[in-house]
């Protein structure tokens, strides 16, 4: 599955024992694909000495700060953009 800019996505809420680059504060949260950065080696296997192949698509996902925490202090339009690999994203 490949997402396009503008599509709604949700970050998987799963735990992951080993090294991974999905911050806890966006797990389970929904956002919108802002950019498609391209394909990169997978840090989850590369961190243990493997070659990180196959490459995974990396996306920049845009979250409304109000979606991340209810008490966003101000600025209803404020956003947080996080780079997330495809296998952490689900279509919404």
């Amino acid at each position: 599955m490949t997402f396009r800019a503008g599509e709604r996505v949700r970050v998987a809420a799963r735990t992951h024992e080993g090294h991974h680059r999905t911050p806890g504060y966006v797990k389970g949260k929904s956002g919108r694909v802002e950019r498609v950065h391209g394909r990169f080696r997978n840090p989850e296997t590369r961190a243990y000495g493997a070659d990180g192949l196959p490459e995974r698509v990396l996306y920049q996902v845009c979250f409304a700060q109000q979606e991340l925490w209810l008490e966003a202090r101000r600025g209803a339009g404020d956003t947080t953009l996080v780079d997330i690999f495809e296998h952490w994203l689900e279509a919404e």
Binding site: R21, P23, G75, D78, L81, D83, I84, F85
Partner: peptide, 13 residues
């Protein structure tokens, strides 16, 4: 009226 965009550089970019 300025939108604040926080970029978290979590990966290769």
């Amino acid at each position: 009226d300025v939108e604040l965009r926080v970029l978290d550089s979590t990966a290769d970019v």
